[in-house]
Design a protein around this nucleic acid. Structure first.
Lengths: 114, 114
DNA sequence: CCCATATGTGCCTTGACACGTATATGCCTA
DNA sequence: TAGGCATATACGTGTCAAGGCACATATGGG
């Protein structure tokens, strides 16, 4: 369970993250909105917390969980090399087709044009 | 193994996809570059193929695998609601806007807090 | 045909993880 | 301080997927 990809592979965890994308929520609110047992919610929140996806603050007996974006940003970064495959830019597509038979995987950084 | 997220949760599969992002490869080339046993490569390719991540063409005894972007685009779409959490960073924002060719009615960037 | 090369598949074992149930911990109010 | 609500955790269980190994299949060349 090290990688961020394994974390978001779980449907319930993705549902929790989507919920928290709109606003912070308490455990009970998550439990009610997603209709899953409270221990399940707590366990998934623990995983998400230890992986840095969420953080919590104490509000009396409640704990309010809110999103932390860094791990998801990591996923976003991993997607970067693939985006040119569905980019609307025709020249980007042509650039892709150009490289289809070039063996050496150039390890260049992301360059911005424009 | 239905969802695209479970597919890319596997490190070897992500490695294969990254390889194919640069250019199409035969099974043997993947095996050699990633240093994993051939049955492992074939099994992962089968999973990727059935999930629509790759497709193959026959070249004599070889099979050339190439990327199909749709499932990864699905991941990209899922990330959309979260991007506003890190789009405040200017450089990331610019990189992000770089791919914003399609005009969804939200013209300006929303930087609201809840 | 026989064989080497290239790739796919079946079986088995192992380990990880998600879930349910029960229980523990902590805080608030009367 | 008792009792109840909110959340966390421990334990046992079942499922499922990844890896190793052997083998099957297909192609091409001598």
């Amino acid at each position: 369970m090290e990688s961020v990809f394994e974390i978001i592979a779980e449907p319930n965890r993705r549902a929790i993250l989507s919920l928290l994308a709109s606003s912070q929520q308490s455990v009970g609110e998550i439990e009610r909105q997603l209709q899953m047992p409270q221990p399940t919610v707590s366990k998934h929140l623990r995983v998400l917390r230890e992986a840095g996806f969420v953080e919590s603050t104490v509000d009396a007996q409640r704990r309010l969980y809110r999103l932390k974006p860094e791990p998801l940003q990591e996923v976003d970064d991993w997607l970067a090399p693939f985006r040119r495959f569905w980019s609307a830019h025709v020249d980007a597509l042509e650039r892709h087709l150009d490289r289809m038979d070039e063996p050496p995987p150039t390890k260049g950084k992301a360059r911005r044009k424009r």
